[in-house]
Nucleic acid binder design. Structure first.
Length: 157
DNA sequence: GCCAACGTTGGC
DNA sequence: GCCAACGTTGGC
C-alpha cells in the first residue's frame, strides 16, 4: 500500500468534477511524461491512496483524497486522433502511455494550501515541494500522508 | 552523445 | 502575464 499525489489543473479537472463523475471514478488520462508514466504503469497499485492536488488556480493545494481502483492500463486517448492527448507513437499493439482509475475517497473540508504544506517541517522532503518539481504523479511517504491529513482541521496551524 | 533551442509547467 | 525550471527535440 503506497501513497501518491496527482496534480490536476482545477479548471481542467477538479475535485468537484471527480465528485460528480459516475461512481465518483475517473481514468487519469493524458499523462505524457515518462517518469510519471512509469509510476502509473509499474508502481501505482489498486488500493493505494492518492492526494488530489489543484494546480494553476486561486487556491493551490490538496483538495481531497482518492483511492486507486484500477491499475495501470494503456491510455487509449493516445491513439484517438481527435484527442488532444493523441500521440502517433503509441498503438494498441505497443502502447506508450498508461493510466489508472481513481475513485474519490473524500473532498477535504478545506483545500490545504501549498504555502501551509511548505511551512510544515514534517513535509520538508516531500517531492512536490522540491524546487522545480513538475511531475504530475509523485510518491508520498506514509508519514507525509498522515501529517497532511492532520492539517485538514487545523487551519493556519 | 552533446547541447542549444524550444515548448510546457506551474507558482507567483 | 511573467519567468524559472524542466523535458524534449533535433542538428551536428
Amino acid at each position: 500500500m503506497n501513497y501518491w499525489l496527482f496534480k490536476s489543473e482545477e479548471s481542467v479537472f477538479s475535485i468537484g468534477d471527480l465528485a460528480r463523475a459516475p461512481g465518483k471514478t475517473t481514468c487519469w488520462e493524458g499523462v505524457r511524461n515518462y517518469q510519471a508514466r512509469n509510476f502509473l504503469r509499474d508502481d501505482v497499485k489498486k488500493g493505494d491512496g492518492v492526494f488530489f492536488y489543484h494546480s494553476n488556480c486561486d487556491v493551490i493545494g490538496i483538495a481531497g483524497t482518492a483511492a486507486v481502483v484500477k491499475e495501470g492500463y494503456p491510455d487509449h486517448y493516445a491513439w484517438d486522433g481527435s484527442s488532444k492527448y493523441f500521440d502517433a507513437r503509441s498503438t494498441p499493439e505497443k502502447p506508450v502511455w498508461f493510466m489508472v482509475d481513481i475513485k474519490l475517497r473524500k473532498k477535504l473540508r478545506r483545500v490545504i494550501p501549498l504555502a501551509e504544506l511548505r511551512e510544515n517541517p514534517a513535509l520538508k522532503d516531500m517531492k512536490i515541494l522540491q524546487k522545480g518539481c513538475r511531475l504530475s504523479v509523485t510518491p508520498v511517504a506514509k508519514s507525509e500522508w498522515e501529517a497532511i491529513l492532520r492539517m485538514e482541521n487545523k487551519p493556519g496551524a
